[in-house]
Amino acid sequence: MRKIYEPENLMEGELLQGMLASEGIEAHITGRHLLGGIGELPVFGLLGLTVDDGLADRARELITEYNAAFPLSGDEPDSYPDVLLC
C-alpha cells in the first residue's frame, strides 16, 4: 500500500475514495481514528489515502484530473429550496 494523497478532511477523503472505487481502484483512508485526538495531535497530515503500489500512478492521475475539473455551466438550479435570498 502506498499513500498517494492527503485529504483536507474526512469528507474529501471519502469522496475521493468513492471516485476511485467507481474506477475500479480500492482505496483506504488512514488516520480516520486519529481525528478525535485533534487538540493533542497536529491538525494537518493525519489523514491519508492509500492504494496498492501498482495502482498508485493511475490513482494519482485520477485525483489530479478530479481536482482540476470545473462544474459545467448551466447545471446550477435557478433557486434553492428553503434558501432565503437577501
Rank of each mutant, 00 (worst) to 15 (best):
residue 3 K to Y: 07
residue 3 K to M: 10
residue 3 K to I: 14
residue 4 I to D: 01
residue 5 Y to S: 06
residue 6 E to M: 07
residue 6 E to I: 10
residue 7 P to S: 10
residue 11 M to N: 13
residue 12 E to I: 11
residue 13 G to S: 01
residue 14 E to S: 01
residue 18 G to A: 14
residue 19 M to D: 02
residue 20 L to H: 00
residue 20 L to M: 09
residue 22 S to R: 13
residue 22 S to C: 07
residue 23 E to A: 15
residue 23 E to Y: 15
residue 24 G to D: 13
residue 27 A to I: 08
residue 29 I to D: 05
residue 29 I to W: 09
residue 30 T to P: 00
residue 31 G to Q: 05
residue 32 R to P: 00
residue 33 H to G: 00
residue 34 L to Y: 03
residue 37 G to N: 02
residue 37 G to A: 11
residue 37 G to T: 04
residue 39 G to M: 04
residue 43 V to Q: 05
residue 44 F to R: 07
residue 44 F to I: 04
residue 45 G to N: 05
residue 45 G to K: 02
residue 46 L to E: 04
residue 46 L to S: 01
residue 48 G to C: 02
residue 48 G to E: 02
residue 51 V to N: 02
residue 51 V to Q: 01
residue 51 V to P: 03
residue 53 D to H: 04
residue 54 G to L: 14
residue 54 G to I: 12
residue 54 G to W: 08
residue 55 L to T: 08
residue 56 A to E: 11
residue 56 A to Y: 12
residue 57 D to R: 12
residue 58 R to G: 01
residue 59 A to P: 11
residue 60 R to D: 03
residue 61 E to W: 06
residue 64 T to H: 12
residue 65 E to D: 13
residue 65 E to M: 10
residue 69 A to C: 05
residue 71 P to N: 06
residue 74 G to H: 11
residue 75 D to L: 15
residue 76 E to P: 00
residue 78 D to H: 10
residue 80 Y to D: 03
residue 80 Y to I: 15
residue 80 Y to A: 03
residue 81 P to M: 03
residue 82 D to W: 13
residue 85 L to W: 14
residue 86 C to T: 07
residue 86 C to H: 08
